[in-house]
C-alpha cells in the first residue's frame, strides 16, 4: 500500500515537473548560455564571445529607450486599471441602478484574448473611419484623420488605453470581492459615528481594501510584464521604436535581426528586473499581512 502510493506520487508529479523543466527551466538556462555567444538563431556554428553582448547592452541606445518605455508601460499598466477598477467597484457597490449589468459589461473584455482586444482597438484608432476620430469629428466638426498608432507621440499611450480597457474589469471584480469581505459592523460604525460617503471611502473602505489591492497590483505587475502580445499586434514596437518595451526589443533583436545571442542577454536582464520587482513586492506583502492578517 505504502509502496503503491509512493509510485503514484512520483507518477503524478512527473508530468508537471517535466513540463516545468522543459518549458521553464531549460529555456532559462539556455538563454543564459546563449547570451555569451554570437548565435544567430539557426546556424549550428557559433562562438563564445564572453560579456560582449552585455557590454553592448550598456551602449545600446535602443535598449535605454526600451527601458524607459517599459517603465512607462508598467507604471501605467499598473496604475490605470487599478484606479479605474477601484472607482468602478465603489460605484457599483454603492448600488447605482443597473450595477449588475455594468459589472458584466466591464468584465467582458477580460474574456477576450489580447489579439482580439488589439484588433478592436486598431479599428477604434483607424485614421479614416475609426470610432475615435469619428467621435472627435462629431464633437469638434473637424475630422482629424489622426493616425494614433502610427505617430511616435501617441503610439504607446494608445496601446496603454487599450490595455487598461481590458484589465480594468479584472481589477473591478477583485475589488468588488474585497468590498464584500469588509465586515458589516465596521461600516455600521461609520454610519453611527456620522461619516459621510467621502470620509467612509477614504478613511475606512480604501484602507480595508488593501488585501484586494495587493492582489490587483500583483496581477497587474505579472500581466504587464507579460504584456507583449497586445503591443506586438497594435504597434510591433513602432513607429521608430516609440513603443518598444524590453520584451519587444528582445524579440526584434532575436527574431528580426537574428541576433539570438544579444537577444538572450536582453532576456537575462529582463528576467533579473522582473525578479527584483517581484522580490520588492513580496517584501511589501509581508508588511500588509502583519496588519490585516
Amino acid at each position: 500500500m505504502e509502496r503503491s502510493t509512493g509510485y503514484w506520487r512520483v507518477a503524478l508529479l512527473a508530468l508537471p515537473v517535466t513540463v516545468f523543466a522543459v518549458f521553464i527551466v531549460w529555456p532559462l538556462f539556455s538563454s543564459f548560455y546563449y547570451s555569451f555567444t554570437d548565435w544567430n538563431g539557426f546556424n549550428p556554428d557559433y562562438d563564445f564571445v564572453g560579456f560582449t553582448n552585455y557590454a553592448k547592452i550598456i551602449t545600446d541606445k535602443l535598449f535605454l529607450n526600451a527601458v524607459i518605455n517599459t517603465v512607462i508601460w508598467m507604471l501605467a499598466a499598473i496604475l490605470l486599471p487599478t484606479a479605474l477598477g477601484l472607482a468602478l467597484a465603489l460605484l457599483i457597490d454603492s448600488r447605482v441602478p443597473g450595477g449588475a449589468l455594468f459589472k458584466s459589461i466591464f468584465y467582458l473584455p477580460i474574456c477576450l484574448s489580447a489579439v482580439v482586444v488589439g484588433q478592436i482597438w486598431i479599428w477604434i484608432y483607424q485614421p479614416d473611419w475609426g470610432l475615435l476620430n469619428t467621435v472627435i469629428a462629431q464633437v469638434t466638426g473637424d475630422h482629424p484623420r489622426y493616425a494614433w498608432l502610427a505617430k511616435p507621440d501617441t503610439a504607446l499611450g494608445s496601446v496603454i488605453v487599450a490595455w487598461s480597457w481590458q484589465q480594468t474589469g479584472l481589477s473591478m471584480v477583485i475589488f468588488l470581492a474585497g468590498l464584500t469581505s469588509i465586515p458589516g459592523d465596521l461600516l455600521e460604525v461609520c454610519e453611527i459615528e456620522g461619516a459621510n460617503v467621502w470620509q467612509r471611502t477614504r478613511i475606512v473602505v480604501i484602507p480595508l481594501l488593501t488585501p484586494a489591492t495587493v492582489v490587483v497590483v500583483a496581477l497587474s505587475v505579472i500581466n504587464s510584464l507579460k504584456g507583449f502580445d497586445i503591443l506586438y499586434i497594435m504597434t510591433g514596437g513602432g513607429p521608430f521604436h516609440s513603443s518598444d518595451t524590453l520584451a519587444m526589443h528582445m524579440y526584434n533583436e532575436s527574431f528580426k535581426k537574428y541576433l539570438m545571442g544579444y537577444g538572450s542577454a536582453i532576456s537575462v536582464v529582463l528576467f533579473l528586473i522582473a525578479l527584483t520587482v517581484i522580490r520588492i513586492y513580496f517584501r511589501e506583502l509581508r508588511r500588509v499581512d502583519e496588519i490585516y492578517g
Binding site: 475606512v204 484602507p207 480595508l208 488593501t210 490585516y292
Partner: peptide
Amino acid sequence: QSYALFPH
C-alpha cells in the same frame, strides 16, 4: 460584540 475596531 465584535468590537468593530478598524484594524488599520
